[in-house]
Each structure stands twice: as structure tokens, then as C-alpha cells.
Design a protein around this nucleic acid. Structure first.
Length: 516
RNA sequence: GGGCCUGUAGCUCAGCUAGGUAGAGCAUCUGGCUUUUAACCAGGUGGCCAAGGGUUCGAAUCCCUUCAGGCCCGCCA
């Protein structure tokens, strides 16, 4: 059984409303690892819906969290905002309402693209609206108990006057620097590092927030959460998951949700991603180079407990090929091979929106890498595909959309991630190369051979072989010569297919030029 | 130190949430009209499933122990 169904079945055993929660702090580009949290949950969500369960998928943006430090991707001037809630900090690009919005918005767009539709909550609004008031009051009434839980389970020593509440200084509006001096419900007197001394009424919204270890369980109760995946860093012994379980049960009197652990996504050659270190691949960027169904496939095809190594280089091509192959198997065009586990289910869960009823028109992704570099834009690519008979002239609308989308992804990948070995550029004008007399003789024979054949990859290929044999130059040298006059480099894509995708007139003209 | 994950063909991995004769891709070898280049086809070679023990009629698959590697334990998924 697919892991999403296994998890869904377990939840189904309890007949009640299920709230599947996800939560990410938009303090930087939200990366593909964060996306795993959402997609993992979405898999379970869809499975529950199919089972007819009463279920809701939510996403809580922790935008009331303070900015921890000036991250590498921020200007130095952000120093003055450290400690303020990210929903109150100006947007780095100036086009969004706040710092949090800047990162949140692109993430929400990505969600739309991969077909995830959660109900979105913002912590900043929840705090300001006073939604947290009860939870805050309960936490403050149970300081001693909470303190004991955290100190016992996490083995951390809390400071003397510690309160389960981080006050937001009224003067500097920073959340992390104010220390409580006296607490008498509902008033906390405090002294801030900025020199300000004041008092807040905890019943009022937005005067501060619960620390993370308490905020999390408080939220479970408040939103009725029954399932939430968490990253392996939080799942460590004595971590937020352990203290959260104890706090939600002992303080908030609510059963802890199912907290499954998911592993990190590594970038090949770089290890785990850290947005704070700048070694992260944003979900947006990821979606520019990987078709949405393939990104979903990456997550759905792997058990959450397994780490995934993502290779932004040639690995992307393999991933798309694997997806296409499973698609062919799904639609019965290819035989299933042993080891394609839960193939049908994986394929279904990989669809961002509707499940196709017939197989989408496939063009091998690697091949698109070549054609896109010849055609440059969709219209030309389409023209080449039609001329070479790789697609029919009348293509179904959704098939055209599908191929066009892939072409766009290939382009982005070529521009930003592809290794040099697969890149080439057709020179519009004759490149500056010196050909020796043998090469020229070979070319003049090749012209004759090519002139009268059908413009077909295999025939072109054979013509090149014939010419090289007649002129007694090595086949290697022959191919090199071809690449030189078209690409200005000594290597290139498979020659026959490559030339067949070019316009014959253009090829012949270039060949003529080369022997002058 | 603690936690989680991983250890299956030369390489990358599937199979382990149904325990029942070892799977794929790449690489390599042979053949197909000579086929550089990650868009051929057909076939072959190649594995004591990390090691040891246990449960079972039967274990890559379940349990225990050991070894090796990776990641995580600061509110970074």
C-alpha cells in the first residue's frame, strides 16, 4: 500500500473531523525541502478525501516570528529589523506588503501550481485578533508545570524569571529582547534591552507571542489538529515534538496529533539545504525547472522517512524520464517492471489537478533539451516537431499545453542549471574555424550525399558515414567537422538527429559556405 | 552522547505495510548496415541482499546484536 494510504487509514480509524496541518516560517525563500512537508500532507489529505472522511488541510504561516539575523541574501541595512516580527518588516523588493509577504507570496503561487489548496492561516493575524488569548492565559497559569516539562524533557535550563511568553517591546517593537520583571495576571512588567520599561496586558492581542515550544501545542488545540508532519530536526529526543506532546496533553488537555517525521532533501554535492546558509533551492526555482507533476512524483514516490537526493544537473532529466515511463506503464503502453512499487497510486497522487483519462503526448525530455536549443521559442520548437513528424499537425489542446510547459521548463533548466556538456548554440553566421583540406574534401562529398536524400535522421547519419569512408577520414573527425561549422565546438548532440531537426536549406547553405 | 535514516550487481537504486524461486537503469560484453555524443534494438556476464544470531516449512523482507556511512539534536524541514 502507498504510504499516504497507510497514514490515511490510520487516521480513519478515529471517526472525527481531521485537520492536517503544515507550517513554515516565511523568513526566507521557502525551499523544496519545505515543500516536502506540504506535499506529504497533501498526499494523506487526498487519500482521506477519497475515503469520504471529513478533513481539512491547513497551512499556518509563522509570520509573527521575529527575524533571527541578517541572512546572507539580505542587505546589511536589515540589521535594525532583527528581533521584529517578519510581518512588520518592509519587503526586500518593495513590491509586497511586508517581508513575510515577499516570501510567502511566491510560495503560495507555487502551491497553486502543484495543486495544493490549503486553508491559509497567518500567525500574525491570529495573535493580533486575540485568537491565542486563552492559550496564553493557560500557559501563564501553568508556568511551573510547563517549566518542569521543558527542563525535564529537553534537559535545558531556563532562566530564573522565565515566562512562557515573549513580550513585544512597545518602544522598539522587538520580540526577543524584553525580559519580564513582574507578573500578576493579566499584567506583565518588563524591561527591554533598548532601555524601555513598561507593562503589557496579555489579554490584548499582538503584545507578544508564545515561545515556539508552547506555540506549537497551543495551536494543535486551537485548530483541532490531528496530523502534522515534522522535519527530522524537530523530531529529535527532547526536541519540540517531545515537549509539545507533553504540553498539549498536560496543559491544554488535548490529545497530541499524529506527528510523522519526514527526512530532508539534499542537493547533490551540497548536502542538506539551509536557507539561512544560502544553500537552498527555492520551491519557485524548482518549479521553473521541473514540471509540477514531476515534483509531486519525486515526493510521492519516496517514503517520507527516506531522504531524497536531488540533482539539479542531469538528474533532472532522469527524474522526468522516470516519470514519463511510469506514465506509459500506467496507461498500459509499456509493461510494468518489478520494483515499480505502488505505481498506479503514485502516479495518481502526482497529478496536480485532474487525472488524465488518456496518456499525454510524450516527447522524450532529453530530446527536448536538443530541440529547445535549436528552436529557442515555442513556435519554432513546435514547427520543428511538426516538420520532423514528431508530433502531428493537429495536436489536442491539452497535449500542446503539456509539451509547451515542458519546453519552458527545459529552457529554464538549460539557462540556470544544465552542465556545459549538454549545451550548444547554433551559430547564425559561419563560426571562425579553420578547416584543413581533408575536412573540406569530406564536406564536399557530404554535400553531394545529403542533397538528394529525405531529411531523415538515419539517412543523414548514413550519408555522413558514406562520405567519411569515401574520403578516408575517421568518423570521429567527420562528426567533429560537422559540429565545428554549426556549433563552433568539437562535440554535440547525435549528429543525424541533430541535423534532421534543422532546416535542410540552412544546413546545405552552411555546408556550401564551409568549402569555399 | 542521543535520535532518525541508509547498507541489495562495478555504479545509482527498487523490492522490505501482504515473508514464498533476486529486479531496473547505467557500465561492460556479443550480435543487428560502419552509429562520436546521456534519444537505438536484441541478447549475455554480473549479487552468500553489510555481518552474526533468532522466529518460520520458508527471511533481502519480521525480531535482537554488531559493524560501517549519512543526517539531525541553537525556534533553519
Amino acid at each position: 500500500m502507498h504510504w499516504a494510504d497507510v497514514l490515511a487509514e490510520k487516521l480513519c480509524a478515529q471517526e472525527k473531523k481531521h485537520v492536517l496541518a503544515t507550517g513554515i516560517t516565511p523568513s526566507g525563500p521557502i525551499h523544496i525541502g519545505n515543500m516536502r512537508e506540504i506535499l506529504t500532507t497533501d498526499g494523506v489529505y487526498r487519500s482521506l478525501i477519497e475515503r469520504g472522511a471529513n478533513v481539512e488541510l491547513i497551512y499556518v504561516a509563522d509570520d509573527f516570528d521575529p527575524l533571527r539575523k541578517v541572512y546572507p541574501y539580505l542587505p546589511k541595512s536589515y540589521e535594525k529589523y532583527v528581533g521584529k516580527p517578519i510581518s512588520d518588516i518592509p519587503c526586500p523588493c518593495g513590491n509586497h506588503k511586508s517581508y513575510a509577504d515577499h516570501f510567502l507570496k511566491s510560495f503560495l503561487n507555487s502551491l497553486k501550481e502543484i495543486g495544493v489548496k490549503p486553508r491559509v492561516y497567518r500567525a500574525s493575524e491570529m495573535y493580533r485578533n486575540g485568537d491565542y488569548s486563552d492559550a496564553i492565559q493557560i500557559a501563564l497559569e501553568n508556568v511551573t508545570k510547563i517549566r518542569k516539562i521543558i527542563e525535564t524533557i529537553s534537559k535545558r535550563q531556563l532562566t530564573k524569571g522565565w515566562l512562557p511568553f515573549n513580550i513585544r517591546c512597545e518602544q522598539c517593537s522587538k520580540i526577543s529582547n524584553a525580559k519580564p520583571t513582574l507578573y500578576q495576571f493579566p499584567i506583565i512588567e518588563y524591561k527591554c534591552d533598548c532601555g524601555f520599561e513598561g507593562e503589557v496586558d496579555v489579554r490584548k492581542g499582538g503584545v507578544g507571542k508564545l515561545p515556539w515550544r508552547i506555540d506549537w501545542p497551543a495551536r494543535w488545540k486551537m485548530l483541532g489538529v490531528t496530523f502534522e508532519p515534522c522535519g527530522k530536526d524537530l523530531a529529535t529526543v527532547g526536541g519540540a515534538r517531545d515537549t509539545g506532546k507533553a504540553i498539549v496533553e498536560q496543559i491544554y488537555n488535548y490529545p497530541h496529533p499524529a506527528l510523522i517525521v519526514y527526512e530532508f532533501i539534499m542537493l547533490k554535492g551540497q548536502g542538506a539545504m539551509h536557507s539561512s546558509k544560502g544553500t537552498a533551492l527555492s520551491s519557485e526555482e524548482m518549479l521553473h525547472m521541473t514540471p509540477p507533476e514531476v515534483l509531486r512524483f519525486l515526493i510521492m514516490n519516496n517514503q517520507p522517512s527516506k531522504h531524497i537526493v536531488f540533482d539539479t544537473g542531469l538528474g533532472v532529466l532522469n527524474l522526468v524520464d522516470e516519470y514519463d515511463r511510469e506514465e506509459r506503464v500506467y496507461f498500459g503502453e509499456e509493461e510494468e517492471i518489478k520494483g515499480m512499487k505502488d505505481l498506479r497510486r503514485t502516479y495518481e497522487l502526482s497529478q496536480p489537478y485532474l487525472l488524465p483519462t488518456t496518456i499525454p503526448y510524450q516527447i522524450p525530455y532529453r530530446h527536448l533539451v536538443t530541440i529547445v536549443q535549436i528552436g529557442n521559442n515555442w513556435n519554432k520548437v513546435k514547427e520543428i516537431l511538426i516538420r520532423t513528424g514528431q508530433i502531428p499537425e493537429e495536436l489536442k489542446e491539452q497535449d500542446e499545453r503539456h509539451i509547451k510547459q515542458r519546453v519552458e521548463h527545459v529552457k529554464y533548466w538549460l539557462e540556470n542549471f544544465a552542465p556545459d556538456e549538454v549545451k550548444f548554440k547554433i551559430h547564425e553566421k559561419f563560426p571562425s574555424v579553420d578547416l584543413d583540406s581533408n575536412q573540406k574534401k569530406f564536406l564536399s562529398v557530404a554535400i553531394k550525399k545529403l542533397q538528394n536524400i529525405d531529411w531523415d535522421a538515419e539517412k543523414i547519419h548514413n550519408a555522413i558515414y558514406d562520405a567519411s569512408e569515401e574520403e578516408k577520414i575517421t568518423i570521429k573527425e567527420a562528426f567533429k567537422t560537422i559540429y565545428q561549422i554549426f556549433l563552433g565546438q568539437i562535440k554535440g548532440p547525435r549528429a543525424g538527429y541533430f541535423l534532421s531537426n534543422l532546416d535542410k536549406k540552412f544546413v546545405m547553405k552552411r555546408l556550401e559556405q564551409s568549402i569555399k
